[in-house]
Design a protein around this nucleic acid. Sequence first.
DNA 1: CCTTAAGTTGACGTTAACGTAAACGTTACT
DNA 2: AGTAACGTTTACGTTAACGTCAACTTAAGG
Lengths: 132, 132
Amino acid sequence: MAKRFYSISELAREFDITTRTIRFYEEKGLLQPQRQGQQRRYSESDRVRLTLILRGKRIGLSLQESQKFIAMYDPAHGNIDQLQSLLTEVNQRRQQLHQQMQDLKAMLTELDDVQSRCQQALQHAQQQETMS
Amino acid sequence: MAKRFYSISELAREFDITTRTIRFYEEKGLLQPQRQGQQRRYSESDRVRLTLILRGKRIGLSLQESQKFIAMYDPAHGNIDQLQSLLTEVNQRRQQLHQQMQDLKAMLTELDDVQSRCQQALQHAQQQETMS
DNA sequence: CCTTAAGTTGACGTTAACGTAAACGTTACT
DNA sequence: AGTAACGTTTACGTTAACGTCAACTTAAGG
């Protein structure tokens, strides 16, 4: 089984971020670790939240957006209206993510293009070099 | 054929951004429109650059990063060393984009999960409602 | 007891990416 | 001549996401 609890600097090392950053996330309401006296104790679920936040950052989400995403995941949506609005939000997010997918694919093929042209150019340049 | 030139507000309308934003991108060296007297005239290639910038933003790139991407695209890389370092940079970028792809896919499947659970809950809730 | 390592709470500083407002010029009606 | 509609520069304001101290506490080891 995994470890029961983590200290702040353990998490910082694991994810290669500073402790300041972790405390900042707490300040913004993205994490709520327990306390043992003064010190913060991070549970496995805190750790998961942190990975979600950082994944969000990698794809360009703001902390607020990541917060909303995480809120979507846990199942505490009581009445019908809430469920409805949650569903519409889910669909909006899906749209956005699909758009990002398209953008990523486009950029990747463009990179392929750059790469092959670049290699071509290298071939020529190196031939020139051996000629001189 | 497309239009020869665009005014700043035309582009602003088309891309749903402010003229301030466009001038800001110029300030940062991402655009270099011609001038006709005082006023800026944007060519088709300026317009393309703008779309690239905005696409970059959608996937979470900073303006500097977009700038580098765009710089990669145009073929003005003279000597061998430059070509080599360009190739390594291309590969780094590719890595990063692939990571983003993974992240996106993960989030999308999680959204699928949320959605189905959400619909389940709605079913139950609505049944409850007709019972009362 | 002293030091060292890790933790804590303020509080101010910084960078990116614009927003906002002032003060002004140019063209185009009417 | 007046007044919109569009453009310009300059400059200060703002928000997010931390960085960077400073001043303090707490726990562990020699």
